[in-house]
Structures are given as structure tokens and as C-alpha cells.
């Protein structure tokens, strides 16, 4: 474990929190104000009657938009741009969707089991046409369990950075550099949790979320492969190029 001064941890925590706020796509207050706006039944019917490929394309676009903000988040984390370019790409390929899932808890309404999507709050039924009910259920369950931790914005920021800087990703060239950065981020996260007087078990709960995130992303890949097998041309010509780069 690296020796890091309290001042350095404080500085890193501030840098990561600031980067998160600057790149979070929607402010929490904005999302809370919108939370009473759920899709009406006829709008839900509209989504459900979309052809499968059209709904997939829409979701791929939304995911890609969210990921672009995550790339910007990564770039602003102290030390990320000092990693070699191969490793920056490896970390983003493996971790950007995970961070989108973490960030999703900010846009999730636990009372109604809805998430902000395409301008309003949507329940799992809105995503029916995708034909991957299990994945959707898992994503909603994950958001719900993340929300139950009641993380503050700085805790979400630090946890997102910790997820993104995972040193165990395959194909890293300078694993040691990433490891150092992740360890520092973990210390900064612990520092913030202590400062916020969180209960002792919170870190181990967050560790469980790391494996849940990996399984969600693996499921996303499986579902994408199954979809691509049926609609190769749709993916090739209508999906966002960045989405294909990340998940192709």
C-alpha cells in the first residue's frame, strides 16, 4: 500500500468529486425535480410496440451518450491521463459501462421503480421490446440496491473512480501504475466515508457492488451478442460507432 499523506488524500478526493460534478450529465436536483414525470400508459405502449431493433438502437444511443460523460470524468481524474494510452483505453472499455450503472442510481426513483430515460421516468416495462427482461430486471435491482446505500455525491464520485481504475482488467500494460492509482483512490474513498461518518460495513457492501457490476456488464455483452447474431446489419449501420468500439 502506498504511503499517502492526509493532504494528498484530501486533494485527490476533491479532484474526483469535482470531476464527477463537472461531468455528471444531469444534476441531482434536476433529476429529483423530474421524478414525478413518469411515462404515461400510452407512451409506455409506444415503447413496447417499437420493433426490437429500434429500441436497441435507442438504448445504444442513450448508453453511448452517458459513456461520453464518463470518458470526460476519467480524463479529469488526477493521474488517469498519465497512464499509457493502451491502459486508458483498456480501463474505459472495461469500466465505462460499469460507471454508467453506478451513476444510474442518481437517476433512479426507488418508490416507483423507475429510471430517467429519454426525457421521463421509465419502469422496466418500457424496455420490454428489447427482449432481454432478465438483464433489465438485474439493472433495476442493481440500481435499487445501490440506492439503498444512500451514497452522497462525493461517495458516488469516489466509488466510480475506484471502479474505473480497476487494476485487474485484462490487457493492462502498466498494471503497477494502475494499481497505485486504484489504491490511492480506495484510500481517498475510505477517507471520505470516514469523514461522512458512514458505518463500518459500507466498504464491504461497495465491494459486493463491484462484482455485481461485472456480472451486469457480462450480461449486457451476452445480450448484445445474441442481438447482433439476429440483426448484424442494424448493429453495423445504425449503432453509434463508439458503442461498437467499446462492445464490439
Amino acid at each position: 500500500s502506498p504511503t499517502v499523506s492526509m493532504a494528498e488524500l484530501e486533494h485527490l478526493a476533491q479532484n474526483i468529486s469535482k470531476s464527477h460534478v463537472e461531468t455528471c450529465q444531469y444534476l441531482r436536483e434536476e433529476l429529483q425535480q423530474l421524478s414525478w414525470q413518469a411515462f404515461l400508459q400510452d407512451e409506455v405502449d409506444g415503447y413496447q410496440s417499437k420493433p426490437r431493433e429500434v429500441m436497441w438502437q435507442l438504448c445504444a444511443i442513450k448508453i453511448t451518450e452517458a459513456i461520453q460523460y464518463v470518458v470526460e470524468f476519467a480524463k479529469r481524474i488526477d493521474g488517469f491521463m498519465e497512464l499509457c494510452q493502451n491502459d486508458q483505453i483498456v480501463l474505459l472499455k472495461a469500466g465505462s459501462l460499469e460507471v454508467v450503472f453506478v451513476r444510474m442510481c442518481r437517476a433512479f426513483d426507488t418508490q416507483n421503480n423507475t429510471v430517467y430515460f429519454d426525457g421521463k421516468y421509465a419502469g422496466p416495462d418500457v424496455f420490454k421490446a428489447l427482449g432481454c427482461d432478465d438483464l433489465i430486471t438485474s439493472v433495476f435491482d442493481f440500481a435499487k440496491s445501490m440506492c439503498s446505500l444512500h451514497l452522497s455525491e462525493d461517495e458516488i464520485a469516489l466509488f466510480s473512480a475506484f471502479v474505473l481504475l480497476s487494476a485487474d482488467r485484462t490487457w493492462l500494460q502498466e498494471k503497477l501504475q494502475v494499481e497505485k492509482l486504484q489504491q490511492k483512490t480506495q484510500l481517498a474513498l475510505q477517507h471520505v466515508l470516514q469523514k461522512n461518518q458512514r458505518e463500518d460495513g459500507i466498504l464491504s457492501k461497495l465491494r459486493c457492488k463491484v462484482s455485481a457490476l461485472r456480472s451486469l456488464c457480462a450480461r449486457h455483452s451476452e445480450n448484445l451478442s445474441a442481438f447482433r447474431a439476429v440483426y448484424p446489419d442494424i448493429v453495423r449501420s445504425h449503432f453509434p460507432p463508439l458503442y461498437k468500439e467499446l462492445f464490439g
Binding site: Q68, L92, K93
Partner: peptide, 16 residues
């Protein structure tokens, strides 16, 4: 590099 053209571009763009 060609395989991750857009990611490369996004990473190289200066942060706004």
C-alpha cells in the same frame, strides 16, 4: 489504434 479511433479522439480532445 485504428480499432479504437473514437476513444483515442475523445481522450486526445482537450477537456472543455
Amino acid at each position: 489504434k485504428e480499432k479504437h479511433k473514437i476513444l483515442h479522439q475523445l481522450l486526445q480532445n482537450s477537456t472543455s
